[in-house]
Every structure is written in C-alpha cells, then in structure tokens.
C-alpha cells in the first residue's frame, strides 16, 4: 500500500501544480503542455482507483485528440504576449466571480453528500466481482442508460453537422480533383500518336 500512497501523492501533487501552471505561465503553448501533463496525472489517479478503462479513455480522447487540436490552434495564432497581459486587471473581478460561483457550487455538492452503507460498499468494490470494469461500464451504458447515451450521441452529431454546415462553402472557379474520373480515363481519350515527317514538324 505504501507504493500506492506514494503514487497517489506524486500524481496528485503534479496534477495540482501543473493545473496552476496552466493559468499562470506566460507562453500559451507552455500552458497547453501543462494542461496535457494535468490530464496525464488525472489518468494516473484513475488507474490507482482501479478505473483503468477511464484512464486510457482520458489519454486517448483528451490528450491524444483534443489537446492536439488546442496545440494546433495555439501554435498557429500570432499572439502578442505583452498585450495579453494588459487586460489582466480589468478582467480580474469577473474571473474571481466565476471562480467563487464554481467554488460555492462544489461546496454545496460536497456538503450535500450523504454516506449511506450502500455507497460505502460501492466505493469499496465499484465493479461486481464477476466482471472487469469494461464489462461493467458497458452494461451500465448500453442497458441501464441506453437512451441517455443515445441522446448524448445525438447531441454530438448535431454539433458535428453544425460545424460542417458553418464551414462548408463552395467557391466558384476552383478546380477540383475527381479521382474516379481520373482513374477511368482511357488512353484513347488523352493520347494521340502522330507520325511526324522528318525535317518538317507538324
């Protein structure tokens, strides 16, 4: 258990420090890198909890896909670091307000938490003994919460279609490549062999 405790403190401390670094470092690319480190340590905490499926999902989805897009955008932007700092004081009250609201909400959630025996048992053994946690998650998602799961998928689909509709535009006069047309092209349509008389040309 000593190793687990040490690992927990390691992951937890790095996660908290790097989360703080995300908002305090000057360079936005560094802050994305710290965000990735935070995700990674959160995944480590999941592994310690015995939720290795969630941990891997966190790494695949957030670190492997979403953070890459973040990084892409941040790297491409031409950001003036000095200008960015200027508005700091004027936005400070709003930031403090948002933080305060979030903190109060968290406090309410934590304060309203009642420990019953059933919950204690669930914490001690979150997954039924006869299946691993992937099976357990699958059973929950696809049987008990199937409709909600489908609804979540629909929301994502709508978002995806929305993004496509917003960015799709047909410009006139752009030559496009038609692969099937190119593949179907016959030699007879494109090539013509002529006998050229010597010294006269065509």
């Amino acid at each position: 258990m000593v190793v687990q405790a040490l690992a927990f403190y390691l992951f937890a401390i790095i996660a908290v420090i790097s989360a703080a670094m995300v908002v305090t470092v000057r360079n936005p690319v560094h802050s994305v890198l710290f965000l990735i480190l935070t995700f990674f340590n959160a995944a480590g905490l999941f592994v310690l909890l015995g939720a290795e499926f969630l941990a891997m999902l966190l790494v695949v989805v957030y670190v492997g896909a979403i953070a890459v897009l973040f990084m892409f955008v941040v790297m491409m932007l031409d950001i003036n670091f000095v200008e960015m700092r200027e508005g700091f004081l004027s936005y400070l009250p709003i930031g403090v307000l948002v933080a305060a609201v979030l903190f109060v909400e968290l406090a309410f959630v934590g304060g309203g938490w009642v420990m019953t025996d059933a919950k204690m048992a669930a914490i001690a053994q979150p997954v039924p003994a006869d299946m691993n946690n992937i099976n357990a998650l699958g059973m929950l998602l696809y049987t008990d919460y199937a409709y909600i799961f489908q609804a979540a998928g629909l929301v994502l689909l709508t978002a995806m279609i929305g993004a496509i509709v917003l960015t799709l535009r047909h410009r006139k006069g752009v030559r496009r490549q038609n692969i099937s047309q190119q593949v179907q092209r016959q030699r007879a349509e494109t090539l013509e062999i002529k006998k050229v008389p010597v010294g006269r040309g065509i």
């Binding site: 290795e52 790494v59 695949v60 492997g64 990084m71």
Partner: peptide, 21 residues
C-alpha cells in the same frame, strides 16, 4: 493489463507530441 490494446493506442496517440513540440 486488461486494457492492453487501449494502452497501446493511447501511447501511440501521444507520439504526435514529440513531433509537434
């Protein structure tokens, strides 16, 4: 690991960071 294949997939999806950085 009982999520071995996901672990591999996760690690290989991180490979892009070395290149981007």
């Amino acid at each position: 690991l009982n999520v071995g294949i996901l672990y591999l997939f996760a690690i290989s999806s991180l490979g892009v960071y070395g290149i981007v950085m």
